[in-house]
């Protein structure tokens, strides 16, 4: 096997014992790292070394490690999910960082995402937004045959593009206003495009946007930072569609 040259890094990592702790940056060395290791595998290596020394390892969230669960959530060198395009933190590989680099690692910060520990934050506000309207009210057993409503191929594809959101919160972390608009818009778009979403279309848009505000997310003022960091390339056009849904719901809904 041809060994790729190992690399060494300096890490500056946000450490915060719990929600009440003020927190601080701490420095660590990451040595002998393969360029094919993922960013989180690099953190694993650093953590194993810390545990061997009896020190508290860096707490961070991850689960699927393949960019689909939305659990991983680091701001790396000032960018949510780090330097890669269309990648979650877990999909970033160390080949993206030059040997000898200093890498700064912080949590997703936002008023609506309270800190938990180190790089771990509380994103349950997203669940509450979905609970306010991000669904179709259809009880088990009452569904018609799947082919009852035809969905044109391009519409299905567009709905799928929006539905691909993994609920990671990078859009919030990147937004100067800490708005959750891209996340909310992705769900509203998906369901307003599909025939199944029509009956509750207006209520859904109003309730979800209201809930977003109540959860202390900021307003959208069209910076577009969200789209740039989104690991699933959720488009800003979803926000435009959501704004139209909001107007439609406020002005001319019969629901």
């Amino acid at each position: 096997m041809t060994e790729k040259a190992k690399r060494n890094y300096t890490l500056k990592v946000w450490r915060q014992k719990d929600a009440h702790d003020a927190g601080r940056m701490a420095e660590y060395r990451a040595e002998g790292i393969s360029p094919d290791a993922s960013f989180l595998e690099m953190l694993d290596i650093v953590n194993e070394q810390l545990v061997r020394k009896g020190e508290d390892p860096i707490a961070f969230d991850s689960d699927c490690r393949e960019g689909i669960c939305g659990m991983c959530s680091c701001v790396i060198d000032g960018r949510a999910h780090g330097p890669g395009a269309a990648t979650a933190t877990c999909q970033l590989h160390m080949r993206a960082f030059e040997d000898g680099a200093t890498i700064v690692v912080e949590p997703f910060r936002a008023r609506a995402f309270p800190p938990v520990k180190d790089l771990v934050v509380d994103r349950s506000a997203f669940d509450r937004i979905i609970a306010s309207g991000g669904f179709v009210s259809v009880n088990v057993g009452s569904a018609p045959d799947g082919n009852t409503h035809l969905v044109p191929h391009p519409v299905a594809e567009k709905a799928m593009d929006a539905a691909a959101c993994i609920g990671c919160g990078a859009c919030v972390a990147a937004c100067p206003n800490a708005s959750a608009m891209l996340f909310v818009a992705a769900k509203i778009s998906q369901l307003s495009l599909l025939p199944q979403g029509q009956p509750e279309r207006a209520a859904r848009a109003l309730n979800m946007l209201k809930r977003m505000e109540d959860e202390d997310f900021g307003n959208c003022s069209n910076h577009g930072e969200c789209e740039a960091v989104c690991p699933k390339e959720i488009k800003l056009s979803n926000i435009a569609r959501t704004n139209r849904e909001f107007i439609r719901a406020s002005v001319c809904s019969d629901e």
């Binding site: 057993g141 969905v151 539905a163 199944q196």
Partner: peptide, 22 residues
């Protein structure tokens, strides 16, 4: 078969043929 129907009704964006069928 009921599962597919239920999921479609929830708004799961399954792949579609050009005629709009699943």
């Amino acid at each position: 078969n009921n599962i597919i129907d239920q999921c479609v009704a929830q708004g799961v964006p399954f792949a579609r043929e050009y005629g709009g069928t699943l």
